[in-house]
């Protein structure tokens, strides 16, 4: 199982970025191997559709789960179509977020909870 966590910095010790499309980094966690891989968010400064672009990156990474702060309607639709489960309202360090997911303390998002930001 692979997870992507939105992060304000490139390391697992960095705080979770509450934004999805415009997060500074997307950190890929391989639950089986226990390894973290940092993905630069190429679309974080996109004029529009940052969430749509990020959703494609997440889907291409093979992740099935996203841990983030908020997720807007277009990103939600794209992630849903890619079969990615979204857990929002995540706070603390990336490491803590992964632990919270392992402990079953996070709630899956069933509808978008953010508005698009320009």
């Amino acid at each position: 199982m692979k997870l992507v966590i939105t992060a304000q910095g490139p390391n697992p010790e960095d705080p979770v970025d509450p934004r999805f499309g415009r997060a500074a980094y997307h950190i890929l966690f391989d639950d089986k191997a226990g390894t973290f891989t940092t993905l630069e968010n190429q679309g974080k400064d996109a004029a529009q559709g940052a969430g749509v672009q990020a959703a494609q990156t997440i889907a291409a990474s093979g992740a099935e789960i996203l841990l983030t702060g908020h997720c807007g309607p277009k990103a939600f639709q794209a992630l849903n179509a890619a079969g990615v489960s979204i857990f929002s309202g995540v706070e603390g360090r990336v490491l803590d977020a992964v632990q919270a997911w392992r402990d079953g303390r996070l709630e899956e998002l069933n509808s978008p909870d953010g508005t698009p930001r320009h």
């Binding site: 529009q48 940052a50 749509v52 672009q53 959703a55 494609q56 889907a59 179509a81 890619a82």
Partner: peptide, 9 residues
């Protein structure tokens, strides 16, 4: 403009 999302399926 990110108007198209190409996803695996």
């Amino acid at each position: 403009f990110n108007a198209i999302a190409c996803l695996p399926r």
